[in-house]
């Protein structure tokens, strides 16, 4: 995950993260949070913060011309969170089918790199299976691969 990305800030809890997207539409605050829902299972959420209302949305299309950079930053946040909480299983689902599809397209684009560090599963027809490119999933679950004893 060495691609171009924004600097990102973490709360001391290391569950809440923020960064700013900068582009033609100005400065947009991005928030990412992990919520523990079960033993070692965390729901990951990510969206734009409307500083006026305090609302967060992941359905707004910001058109700030920095989609790949934002995505790289989100990937780095997940990478760092799971480096600190190695046993964490991360559940990801978009708020809408199109958003879930967006996650899927990006998993596919970076699959080779992600697969080196993570086991990724997709849920299709109510069943989990190892993630495959080109398949439409309802949700995703990932966990860091164990560190090899001898490297």
């Amino acid at each position: 995950m060495k691609q171009d990305r924004y600097p990102y800030y973490a709360a001391k809890s290391f569950f809440d993260f923020e960064f700013e997207s900068l582009g033609p539409n100005g400065r947009i605050r991005k928030i990412a949070t992990f919520i523990q829902i079960n033993q070692d299972i965390f729901s990951f959420g990510f969206g734009d913060l409307d500083e006026r209302t305090g609302e967060i949305s992941d359905t707004v299309i910001s058109n700030n011309g920095d989609g790949p950079k934002v995505l790289n930053t989100v990937g780095a946040i997940i990478f760092d969170f799971t480096a600190v909480f190695r046993e964490a299983r991360i559940y990801v689902e978009g708020s809408t089918p199109s958003r879930t599809r967006w996650y899927q397209m990006n998993l596919t684009a970076f699959y080779e790199e992600i697969n080196n560090s993570f086991m990724i599963y997709g849920n299709r027809n109510n069943k989990w299976e190892p993630f495959q490119s080109g398949v439409n999933y309802m949700a995703f679950l990932g966990q860091r691969r164990p560190i090899p004893l001898y490297q």
Binding site: P7, Y8, A10, A11, K12, F15, E18, A76
Partner: peptide, 14 residues
Amino acid sequence: KTSAILSDQVASYE
């Protein structure tokens, strides 16, 4: 060991 910058300014969103 991470690239994150710890900050008191980041609120809890849980």
